[in-house]
Each structure stands twice: as C-alpha cells, then as structure tokens.
Design a protein around this nucleic acid. Structure first.
Length: 249
DNA sequence: TTCCGGATCG
DNA sequence: CGATCAGGAA
C-alpha cells in the first residue's frame, strides 16, 4: 500500500538510529499517530497559501526566521509594488524592495538575497520553473541548496510546496515539538532530522505537506517556546513534557 | 525588555 | 562552531 520510502530514492545518507529495528518501528508508529491526532484536531491545513509557485518561493525566503503573520504583511506590499515574478524582483530597486519586506526582519539582506535568487532563477531556467523542476529530485535538492539565500529548510519548502516532491521540511517547531515528546534522531543536524521523518513515513507529498503545516500550527499556537499551552494540546497524551508540566502545576 | 518560524560568513 | 542580521508582539 505504501509507496517506497523516500530515502531510498532521494535521501543520500542514512540515519544510523534506523538500525535499531524495534524502536524504529515504534517511532514510525508514533509519527503516524501524531499526524492523525493533529489532522483530527485541526483538519486539512491547506498549506501553502500562495496563488503561484513564484509567490510560494518568494514567501519561503521571506518567512525565514520570522512569523508568518509578518510575512503576510511583506507579501502584500511586494504584490502591490512589484508582483510575484522573478523578473520584477530583478528589476526592483533594492531599497524599495527592502522597504516592502521590512516586516520580515533582516530586510536588507533578505532583499539582496531575494534579488540574487531571482537572477539565479533566470540563469538556471530562464524563469521557466517547469524546466527547473524537471531534473531528478536528488539533483534538484542539491541544486536548490547551491542557490543564493536557500538553505536546507527553504530548499525543502520549495521542493514540497512548489515542485510537489516528497521532501520533509524541518523547522524549529518540528524540533521543539518532537523534543518535548521525546522522539527524534541521535544527531542534532538538519539532515538527521529530515532523514528521521523520511525513513519512517511513506514518500507521500500530501502527507508531508499536511504534516509540516500541522506541526507549524501546533508549534505557533500551542507548543510555543515559552509558556506552552500543554493542557489544550491535542498531543498531550503522547508527550512526556506535557505530563511533567501538569504534574508540576 | 525579551523572545522568536533561518542563512551566511569568518 | 559563534556572530550577524535588526521587526513585531507581548
């Protein structure tokens, strides 16, 4: 029934924790269980909210290390002033672009990176995203990682939500939630976290799409960094942190 | 005042 | 690795 595990087709390095077969199965069951609890609680998150792949990719750069609410403010101003085309961003005066995205913090470096990325897109595919995304998934990920302003999380955002390839996205919410639940890879690196999920979940674009969106919803509203709302958490029965919080109160 | 959804450079 | 970037909400 399940598709081939994604790491066999895209993931170059294996997570060595997977060699512990018994705990790996238990961890896989838990990851599935968490997903279904989140889906039952929140419903289909319908992420990513963008009318085009270009808008999605621009939003992915703007949202780096900033709240989505502030990103929406910036996206609105960019849409009004320039529109969501890479050509428009290439031609944009940097100071005007920076002014539009001020709400997303680090706006000067982000404006420069957004423009540099737009030039990179032109050089790679002449703004034809079908051409960019046509290449092999493994190579596409490596390629995106070589683009200016694109780190591992943003690359996976683009792979999953624009190219619609099953690449699991890891962010701070993901790590915080899973750490509190007490599940995760041994090595604390981006690739180890990503492999941890991909080796235990089927390579399903819709599953990865919804899972990450649901994690973000929980992480921003409930499983916050400070003063998390454990009593209202849909995952509290699975979470050691929530239990320690309720016993402490 | 403190905290907070990354990427890059040295 | 640590430093840097530098707004908005609480």
């Amino acid at each position: 029934m399940w598709a081939m595990p994604y790491h066999e087709s895209l993931q170059p390095c294996a997570d060595h924790a997977a060699s512990h077969a018994v705990s790996a199965n238990a961890q896989s069951d838990l990851l599935h269980k968490l997903y279904h609890k989140l889906l039952a609680h929140y419903g289909d998150p319908n992420w990513w909210p963008a009318a085009s792949r270009e808008e999605m990719m621009i939003g992915a750069i703007l949202v780096q290390n900033v709240s989505w609410k502030n990103t929406v403010t910036a996206l609105h101003l960019v849409r009004e002033r320039f529109g969501f085309t890479f050509r428009a961003l290439r031609e944009a005066p940097l100071d005007e672009l920076a002014a539009c995205i001020r709400a997303t913090r680090f706006y000067q470096s982000k404006a420069a990176r957004l423009q540099a990325f737009s030039f990179w897109i032109e050089a790679q595919c002449g703004d034809d995203l079908d051409r960019l995304f046509a290449r092999d998934a493994i190579e596409l990920r490596r390629h995106l990682l070589s683009a200016p302003g694109i780190g591992p999380e943003t690359a996976d955002d683009i792979l999953l939500y624009a190219a619609e390839l099953p690449s699991f996205v890891i962010d701070s919410y993901t790590k915080r939630i899973m750490r509190r639940i007490a599940i995760g890879p041994e090595r604390d690196t981006y690739e180890a976290w990503r492999s941890f999920f991909m080796e235990r979940l089927p390579a399903d674009v819709l599953l990865y799409n919804r899972y990450h969106a649901l994690i973000d919803q929980l992480g921003s509203q409930v499983c916050r960094a400070s003063r998390p709302l454990c009593t209202a958490c849909p995952l509290k029965t699975c979470c050691t942190y929530a239990r320690s919080q309720s016993s402490a109160d």
